[in-house]
């Protein structure tokens, strides 16, 4: 009986790489998307072509009713979720003085509230199984701050406090709760930054390059597996040394 993993925002970027990696480890993967149904189906096709098991599920995970429905559908189709990857995330960059309340609230809702809603929903199955893995994708911005990203950094730092608290609450039931903090990873999100910003950041990266989504996914895959059973409440930076 293979484990069931749910990856929020799994249709592209880091989420896509995570979905593919977890499937390659033998998990049945629920690939969640907000709007990009086609992209999510492509990820599912890719997983199936490689002999894996996956299905796409559309839901806006920042909304409670949508999350309830999502978990009901995934449980009915694949089984109870015991590996949850809180990956869904957006940016609405702006200097604080110009940042609107909407820009702040939307980022907190999509990036942090979704993690709360999904983790709460997943706990039921994990408690029953006395086994669980919750991995949230934060960011080096949440650890070190980043100009223009007060909202994004707040939401990502929030994931850290949230994860540590939940780790303490549920650890006695064999459930680990950890955070991955990626640095500059080559995805649509960083593509939008433009060449100048990207080149300017390279000197501060010890490894002198951006990371790939696959390199983040490999770290998630490790934390989601059996071997990482004594690791909880941790923040693992996958950032090429930018945080040093």
């Amino acid at each position: 009986m293979s484990r069931v993993a749910l990856v929020t925002g799994g249709s592209r970027g880091i989420g896509r790489a995570i979905s593919i990696d977890l499937a390659s480890r033998g998990m049945a993967v629920a690939v969640n998307y907000a709007t990009r149904a086609e992209a999510a189906e492509e990820v599912v096709d890719e997983i199936r072509s490689a002999g894996g098991n996956a299905m796409a599920f559309g839901a806006d995970v920042s909304r409670e009713t949508a999350v309830t429905a999502l978990f009901e559908e995934v449980t009915a189709a694949l089984g109870p979720v015991t590996v949850l990857v809180n990956n869904a995330g957006i940016t609405r960059d702006n200097l604080l003085l110009r940042m609107t309340v909407d820009e702040f609230d939307q980022v907190i809702a999509t990036n942090l509230r979704s993690a709360f809603l999904c983790t709460k929903a997943a706990l039921r199955g994990m408690l029953k199984a006395r086994w669980g893995r919750v991995v949230s994708i934060a960011s080096v911005a949440g650890v070190a701050g980043n100009p223009g990203q007060a909202n994004y950094a707040a939401s990502k730092a929030g994931l850290i406090g949230f994860s540590k608290s939940v780790a303490k609450e549920v650890g006695s039931r064999g459930i680990t709760v950890n955070v991955i903090a990626p640095g500059f990873i080559e995805t649509d999100m960083t593509e939008a930054l433009g060449e100048e910003v990207k080149t300017a950041s390279l000197p501060s990266i010890a490894l002198g390059r951006f990371g790939s989504a696959g390199e983040v996914a490999a770290a998630v895959g490790f934390l989601a597996g059996e071997d990482a059973g004594y690791i909880t409440g941790q923040v693992l930076g996958v950032d090429g040394g930018i945080s040093l």
């Binding site: 039921r124 408690l127 029953k128 609450e169 549920v170 006695s172 039931r173």
Partner: peptide, 11 residues
């Protein structure tokens, strides 16, 4: 029974 245990019991 710890507080988590009560939640588990209700489930």
């Amino acid at each position: 029974v710890d507080s988590l245990g009560v939640v588990e019991l209700l489930m």
